[in-house]
Amino acid sequence: MDLGFIITNAIVLSCIYGTLAIGISITWSSVGLINLAYGFIFAFAGYGAWYAAQFLSENGAVVLAAGILSGAFAGIVVCALAFIPIHDKPNFNVRGLIATLAISLIGTQGLMWWFGPRSKNLPDIFGSWSVMLGDMALTADKIGNVVTSIAFVAAVVLWMRSSRRGLEIRAMMMNPHAASIVGIGVRSTGFYVMAITGGMAGLAAVLLSQTYYISPFGGLTPMIKGVSIALCGGLGSVQGAVIAAVILGFNEAITSVTLGGQYVLITQFILIIAILLVRPRGIAGILDRAREA
């Protein structure tokens, strides 16, 4: 195996999974919901993009936008079902987790029922050119994936830093009770957060479909990767998620070169467990109880 090929692959994958991890992280820290329906949102967005490619246009931007929008829509649906009815009820954390699991079960089976188990593939949204870097060919989808995901995440982070809504979301992340006392609507912020993180999942779905196919259960592995990265980086921290994505991406590259592809998950979990044993709240997590709500 070519080392350069593996490293570029690792960078591309860690960009995509990092996007997912940041989405999971933001959801947890601002609305207190562990969104295990993220895999469903991912698959739903993939199918949304596929519909757009079938019936609207095969233009890359259209497909990408359709994926992001359908992801945001699925995020809003999950918010309306799993966050709005129970966010002020006792034991919300556990019940929210189980509710998202139920939505995931319903949603993926619904997709399976509607589209059938056959996987779909999307058109190349970045074209088919390539750049030679030394003796290494960087294809369009790799460069496109990295650039698009970094640009989207950067845009979201900038928006969260500079806008009024972003300020509300950050206030919710810091102290949800105080935020609601000073007049920040918990429900409306929940919708914003879930729409944005759903859009992130949609973006990741379209980008990942350049490499893999879209299938009803295809969102599970990316979700677990995203959850692992978010967990490792510290739930609620964007920087932590970035660091963890880089670490786990390189772990993946090194393991596949030295040990072989099937040991990637094993080394990854050994690494995550080791990190969590040292820092139980993740790399950038705060050590005391992070979010009690």
Binding site: L97, L277, R281
Partner: peptide, 25 residues
């Protein structure tokens, strides 16, 4: 071993990952 240090959701998410690890392996 991780259950001694982690609690609540951190452990739930980790074990979900372990389940996936077993499946893939």
């Amino acid at each position: 071993i991780p259950a001694t240090r982690l609690d609540g959701f951190y452990y739930a998410l980790l074990t979900l990952g372990l389940n996936e690890l077993c499946r893939v392996y």
